Amino acid sequence: MSPRLRSALSAVLIALSCLLVPFGALAAWAAYGLADTDRYVTAMAPLAADPDVREAVADTVGDGILRAVDQHLDVRPVRGSVRPFVRDAVRSFTQTQAFRMAWDTGNQVTHDAVLRALREEGERDVTVDLAPVTAQVKRQLTEDHVPLAQRIPVEHTAVAVLPAGELVALRKGFQVLEVAGFWLPVAAVVFAAAGIGLAVRRRRAVVATALGTALGGALLVLALAVGRRMTLSDLPADVPHPAVGAVYDALTGTLRTVAWLLLGLGLAVALATWLIRQLRRARLARRGPASPAPASAQAQAPTRARV
């Protein structure tokens, strides 16, 4: 193979490798990060202490309890007297260990339900039940001797997490992600190794691969920032934006770390390769050119050879 053809083929392989780096990282994160229940629960666990998330949970659960009270208690003075106690009780409950345990359990149950819906056949809504949280709040109100707290109904209300109409498209996309999450990173590594192996000037090929990897990491960081802004801008006005932003940051934390690692590792490898080349040049310059052989030795060399 001619040097020109080798260089061209090497450039194509390295370009493909660098192009696959951000997509491979994204697919692997979706397939092996979001799809893993334990990792998902671990990522979401710190949000139980986030003030914005706790406020959003308190508003959601409190509104649900108050709606149930409005349906079952017809005396408006009673509803008005219970309302502030319910709000305070729910906010107080979100600061307890029991809430953190309920938060982890709820996330695990929800994640298992979504995964089951994505991996199995069926066209039913994925729902969760907030009755355990309502029961805990009712127990706390009763212990605080709030009037008529015992009459607050604990109803098993199914809250839709994933509509049935979206399952078909999401199921197909999830299957593609499971395949791409494995093969895209493998293909990126194989293309990079083949491109460097075919290169005529391998040091330049290593630098190009490293800089392309760093560029892919930078693009991934930018994509995460743009995705966060678009996610928040598309939310309805009644959805708490700070809480959604906290959830987005928690879910994409691992991917963001990988993106920065790709950026830093690529720049470090490129810089190290450049420094090694400069040090080698400096060492050769200090040695100087090789001194020529003495004239007498050159004259005697043919005589000795003939003898």
Rank of each mutant, 00 (worst) to 15 (best):
5 L>Q: 08
6 R>Q: 15
8 A>S: 11
8 A>Q: 11
11 A>W: 08
12 V>M: 11
12 V>D: 09
14 I>S: 02
17 S>K: 03
22 P>E: 09
26 L>E: 00
31 A>L: 01
38 D>A: 15
40 Y>N: 02
45 A>P: 05
47 L>M: 03
49 A>D: 14
52 D>T: 04
57 V>Q: 13
61 V>G: 06
63 D>G: 10
63 D>Q: 15
64 G>T: 07
71 Q>Y: 00
71 Q>V: 01
76 R>P: 03
84 P>A: 12
90 V>R: 07
95 Q>R: 12
96 T>W: 12
100 R>H: 11
101 M>L: 14
109 V>A: 13
110 T>F: 07
112 D>P: 04
114 V>T: 03
116 R>N: 14
118 L>P: 00
120 E>S: 15
120 E>P: 08
122 G>N: 12
126 V>T: 00
128 V>R: 11
129 D>V: 02
130 L>P: 15
130 L>R: 05
131 A>M: 03
136 Q>I: 02
136 Q>C: 01
137 V>R: 01
138 K>E: 01
140 Q>I: 09
141 L>V: 02
142 T>A: 10
144 D>A: 13
146 V>Q: 06
148 L>I: 04
154 V>C: 00
155 E>I: 12
157 T>L: 10
157 T>N: 14
159 V>Q: 14
162 L>A: 03
165 G>M: 05
169 A>W: 02
176 V>G: 06
180 A>P: 00
181 G>A: 08
184 L>I: 04
185 P>M: 12
189 V>L: 09
189 V>M: 09
191 F>Y: 04
192 A>Q: 04
193 A>V: 15
196 I>H: 12
199 A>E: 10
200 V>I: 08
202 R>V: 13
203 R>W: 08
206 V>E: 11
208 A>H: 11
211 L>P: 05
212 G>H: 13
221 V>C: 01
225 A>G: 05
233 S>F: 01
235 L>A: 03
236 P>A: 12
238 D>E: 15
239 V>S: 04
241 H>C: 01
241 H>V: 15
242 P>A: 06
249 D>C: 02
250 A>N: 01
251 L>E: 00
254 T>D: 11
255 L>S: 02
255 L>C: 04
257 T>Y: 13
258 V>I: 15
263 L>M: 09
264 G>V: 15
265 L>H: 07
267 L>I: 12
272 A>C: 02
277 R>F: 06
297 A>Y: 05
301 A>S: 11
305 A>R: 15
307 V>D: 10
